[in-house]
Design a protein around this nucleic acid. Structure first.
Lengths: 155, 155
DNA sequence: TAAACTCAAAAGTCAGGGAAAGTCAAACGA
DNA sequence: TCGTTTGACTTTCCCTGACTTTTGAGTTTA
């Protein structure tokens, strides 16, 4: 994973977010220090730090430009509902995975639950399903599990 | 057995797993070093490193891709593994439910896990899947989840 | 002096090429 | 026969660079 440059960038951003859930970078400087082209930073951000995965990204061009990433953290019911609502009718494996990881990082779900949910949503588990139905099945299963988890916390 | 190329691949993977129960390979490199086509690695993995035998397989395509195999820890797994093996390639909702209940009653899994697994296997969750594939999907998901649970119970 | 006009410095967009694993069905062999 | 072997084709993900857009600052102009 972190053998790829994108993996390194991701890890670096996650490390920076670890502090207080927010980080501000200069795109060109970061690219320079990592030995990649600037646009790869955009690739990483747009593929991994999406709203759907629990991040908001702000930026500004021109002189003194910046890119700012913030991890949204919510209380339990809100976070679960937000996750359920943001999933939509279909979700791909990677997005599902980081959705789970984000809930885990925000202490919304515990490690055991994260592991179980991840297993249920993994491509391997869903392999018997024809390709065209997999992502919709994944979304449905994810929502059901999150709701079940939510119900369990109350009762 | 090990006169066949598949046998050699199997042995090699087992050796690599010997260390700490997990190994990460580059499919093309391994195929290269063993003098076989890459897709034969898939054949070996899908025929020998199955959930029934206690293995979890993860992978990723594209640049920096990998295949990771994890042997589930055999701490007190016999009950779990027995359940995995008794499921078969397909399972209906009622049988799945009683399987979960049995594991719960026998203190093999805890209440939270039972609830999550039940949610994932519920007809509602699997509704987007065409009827003919639902039971096989359910079986696959169940096995993957049990394996993940078992794997987590080691720490 | 204030509005308008450069200009360079940032970030964004996009399409294409490449790398790696997955799929599948046909051929093969003990 | 049934498990093995193969390779053509697909899918996913990564990386790059050329081009565009936005912004702030400094400069010019009425």
């Amino acid at each position: 994973m972190s053998s790829s440059i994108s993996g390194k960038i991701t890890q670096m951003l996650l490390d920076m977010l670890e502090q207080d859930g927010t980080t501000e970078i200069r795109r060109n400087d970061l690219a320079q220090s990592l030995g990649c082209v600037p646009s790869q930073i955009n690739y990483v951000i747009s593929s991994r730090f999406t709203p759907e995965r629990g991040y908001i990204v702000e930026s500004r061009r021109g002189g003194g430009g910046y890119v700012k990433i913030t991890r949204v953290s919510l209380d339990f019911p809100t976070a679960i509902m937000h996750a359920v609502n943001s999933v939509g009718p279909s979700i791909d494996p990677l997005t599902a995975r980081s959705c789970i990881m984000n809930l885990l990082a925000g202490d919304i779900i515990d490690r055991d639950a994260a592991s179980l949910i991840a297993a249920a949503l993994d491509e391997n588990a869903l392999r018997p399903i024809p390709y065209e139905y997999r992502d919709t099945a994944r979304a449905s299963i994810l929502k059901q599990m999150l709701l079940a988890y939510s119900n369990n916390r109350k009762g």
